[in-house]
Amino acid sequence: MRPFVYEQPTDISAAVAIASRFTTEDDQPTRANAQFIAGGTNLADYMKLGVAEPNRLVDLNRLKDPGLRQIRVTDEGIRFGALVRMGEAADHAELKRGYPVIADSLRLAASGQIRNMASLAGNVLQRTRCEYFRETSWHCNKRVPGSGCAAMEGFNRQHAVLGGSDACIATYHGDFAQALIALDAVVRAEGSRGARKIPLAKLHRQPRDTPEIETDLAADEIITAIEVPAVPWARRSLYLKIRDRESYAFALASAAVALDLDGDNVREARIALGGVATVPWRAKAAEEALQGKTLDEPSAGAAADAAFAGAEPRQHNAFKIELGKRTLVRALLETRDMKV
């Protein structure tokens, strides 16, 4: 592990100022000399492995603004402070009742210990766990741009079938972001160029030919809050996560589903997929396929086919297309059958 400077600012503007001083406009947040740290469950791990190499850490845990640590549920929706821990949100009674897809996605993520450390904003920004990215002796375009991708023809069972490119097929492994994207959440960010709102759907970047660019954020921008609007489909929602073991494993496939039903007829459907894509993946084609239809096994199956129409399999991950479809079908039917 390399030496680094450690700073603990107490307000957001000071944190931005430090980051601004030690980064440039072109720096990617994950590659900049100065990087923010909250729970540290991702960054500290990658620093030890030599994957992340900031020489200055700006710790956000001393920031004083109380809103950063609050969950507010109102008629308009939810506002999560960025520093709320995953475990705290997973256990929130109003979320479980009114936004089950969010509570589920948090409860099924990581382990109890990690959930108690990891912040919500940090969770959304978590980096891929691609085996070839994590270990510096492999070629990886995301870690070292232009160096090649060892996963493409390697052991790629965990890798993405949606949103990949010739440069990178690393999966986005998070769960929470799928629930957020299904509910049209936005993040609030503050940086040296001011404050702004970013739809969660626009936060993450697909790899294309620049897999080292992971998000839309500037290196000196801090996510301060995540906002979820109150929508009619929030209450009838769930997150289904399929994995190799019952707990503490990444999704092989997951589905965040939210439905507004009239009987068994779909007024509105919101669908996001995890474990199968390079970014939190909104399945708009599947949503449209269901609009106005009776939700049953055939219509769910048609929606699942639409969701994976553009999927591109590799040697070891082809099963994710079939599994992803079945996961979505099961999630849709289970959501339909929820008692709300």
């Binding site: 766990r129 085996e131 070839y132 994590r134 270990e135 060892a150 023809e153 390697g154 052991f155 069972r157 965990q158 190799d244 073991r245 019952e246 707990s247 503490y248 494993a249």
Partner: peptide, 25 residues
């Protein structure tokens, strides 16, 4: 343990990807 057949190298060299049962299993 997954072996990358091109390089004869182990790929999943940690407890993140080398799965053993957890309590819930």
């Amino acid at each position: 343990t997954e072996v990358d057949s091109r390089y004869a190298r182990y790929v999943n060299r940690d407890l993140q990807d080398y799965l053993v049962p957890v309590n819930a299993d």
